[in-house]
Design a protein around this nucleic acid. Structure first.
Lengths: 232, 232
DNA sequence: GCTCGTTTCAAACGACCGTTTGAATGATAC
DNA sequence: GTATCATTCAAACGGTCGTTTGAAACGAGC
C-alpha cells in the first residue's frame, strides 16, 4: 500500500454505475465502451464483468437501481390521492401529478444523479435495442395499468383509446423536455432559464393538463377552422 | 454476366440510403454496421465509402435527402397561411398545422419511406452524437425562427419564453408519438388502431393545441388544487 | 504465522469495426 | 480493336470492441 493511499474501495459497484450512467447520457449505450466506463470510475477493466457479468447486465442495473424506486414512488403518490378521494374518481391533475410530478422532481435533483438518470430514461423510450425495451416493459408492468385505470375513471366521457394516446403524448412531451435539452437549444438560442430546476415542472404541468383535457376532434375529417374557443 | 441477370444497377446510392435509413431506425446509428447496410442494399461493402466518403457522411445524407424537402414544405405551408391572413397574426392552429401537420403527413406515408424517416428523425432529437446534433441545428436554422416569430405574434399575451417551452413540448409529443411506437406498446397492450396512418394526426393535433393554449401556471409555487376549469 | 474466499490487476483473446487498396468490370468514344 | 473513365469487387488493413484468464493483493478467521 504505502504510497497509493487511494486504494481503499468505497464501493466499486456504485462507482461503476455512476460512471456508466453519466457516460450513457453523454454518448449512448453503444458508443460508450467498457474502457471508458472503468476509466471514469477509476477501476479495472475486468471489474465490470466481475461485478455485473456483462455490459448488457450493467445497463439493466443502471436502470433498475433508480427505476424501481421511481415507480414505487409513483404508485405511492397515486395511492395517497386515492385514499384522500375515498373511492371517488381522482381529478386528472392529481393523476398527472402522481405520475409526472414524481419524475420531474427526480429530474430536478442534480445533486444525486437524478437529473442525469431522467435524461437517460427519457432517451431510452425510443431506444432501438430490444433487450432494453423488454426490460422497460417489465419495470412498468406494475405501474401503467394502475394509472390507466385511474385515468379511465377520471375521464369517463373520453374514449379509453383516446386516453391512452394522450397518456403516450404526455410521456413524450415530458421525456423530451428532460432528455432533449439539446433539442431545446435548437429552438431557443440562449434565452431560457435552465438554471432553475423547478422551472420545467411549473411550465410542463399546465401543458400536459391542457393537452390531456383538450376537446376531442370531430370523428370525421380534420377539424376545420373556428376550433373550440380557448382562453389565452 | 450470363447467369447473374440481377447485376444491372438502378441506383446504388439510393439503395444504400434506403437500406441505411431502415436499419438506423431498427438498431440506431452506432449499432448499425456498414456490412449490414451494404448487405441489405445488395451492394459491395466499399461502395459506401466510394459514394459517400464515410459512414458519418452517409448518415448526414440520409437526413438531408428528406429533411430539406420537409422543411421547405413547412415554410411553404406557413407562407400560404400568412398570405391568406394578409398581415394579420395567424391563428395558433394554423401555425401548428404548418409545422406539425406536414410532419404528420410525411409520417403517414408508409409507401415511400416517409414513415420510416420520421421515426428516425424523432429519435434523433435526443441523439447524443455531437455531429448529428450540429447537423440538425443547421438544417433547422432557416425554419425555427420563422415559426417562433409567427407564434409570438399569434399569442401576444403569452410570454415568449413560455411559447418556446411549449413549442419544445409539442416537438417532444410529436416525436415520441411517431418514433415511439415501441413506447406506446408499453402503455397500451394491443388495443390501439395503429393501422390507420391518419389516426395519429387526428389525435395528436387537438392535444398539441390544448397544450399550447393551456392557461399559464401561477407565477409563485406549484398550482394548488382547483386548477382552471376545463371542459370534458 | 497460515488459510481461504473475495476482489483487483495486467495481459491477452477472437470478433467485428470503418476504411483502404489494387485489380477486375462495364460503358463510352474514337 | 484501344484508351478512358466511373464503378464494383474481394481482400486486407490497423484499431477497438466485450470478454476471459491466471496470477497478485487483500481482509477475516484462527
Amino acid at each position: 500500500m504505502s504510497l497509493t493511499e487511494a486504494k481503499q474501495n468505497p464501493d466499486t459497484r456504485e462507482r461503476i454505475l455512476d460512471a456508466a450512467e453519466s457516460l450513457f447520457v453523454e454518448f449512448g449505450f453503444e458508443a460508450t465502451s467498457m474502457r471508458q466506463i472503468t476509466g471514469r470510475a477509476g477501476v479495472n477493466l475486468a471489474s465490470i464483468n466481475y461485478h455485473f457479468g456483462s455490459k448488457e447486465a450493467l445497463i439493466q442495473e443502471v436502470f433498475r437501481r433508480r427505476l424501481t424506486w421511481l415507480n414505487r414512488e409513483r404508485l405511492n403518490a397515486l395511492e395517497r390521492f386515492e385514499k384522500e378521494a375515498q373511492g371517488a374518481p381522482l381529478k386528472p391533475h392529481q393523476i398527472v401529478e402522481a405520475f409526472f410530478g414524481v419524475s420531474l422532481r427526480m429530474a430536478a435533483d442534480t445533486e444525486h444523479g437524478g437529473h442525469t438518470f431522467m435524461r437517460l430514461l427519457g432517451r431510452t423510450y425510443t431506444e432501438p435495442s430490444a433487450f432494453v425495451r423488454q426490460f422497460l416493459a417489465d419495470e412498468y408492468a406494475a405501474v401503467v395499468p394502475r394509472f390507466k385505470q385511474a385515468l379511465f375513471r377520471s375521464l369517463p366521457d373520453v374514449p379509453p383509446e383516446e386516453i391512452l394516446w394522450r397518456f403516450h403524448f404526455m410521456l413524450g412531451a415530458m421525456s423530451y423536455a428532460i432528455a432533449g435539452t439539446d433539442a431545446l437549444q435548437l429552438v431557443a438560442e440562449h434565452e431560457l432559464d435552465e438554471k432553475d430546476p423547478g422551472a420545467l415542472a411549473r411550465r410542463l404541468m399546465p401543458f400536459l393538463l391542457g393537452g390531456l383535457r383538450a376537446p376531442l376532434a370531430e370523428a370525421s375529417a380534420k377539424p376545420r377552422e373556428k376550433g373550440p374557443r380557448r382562453a389565452i
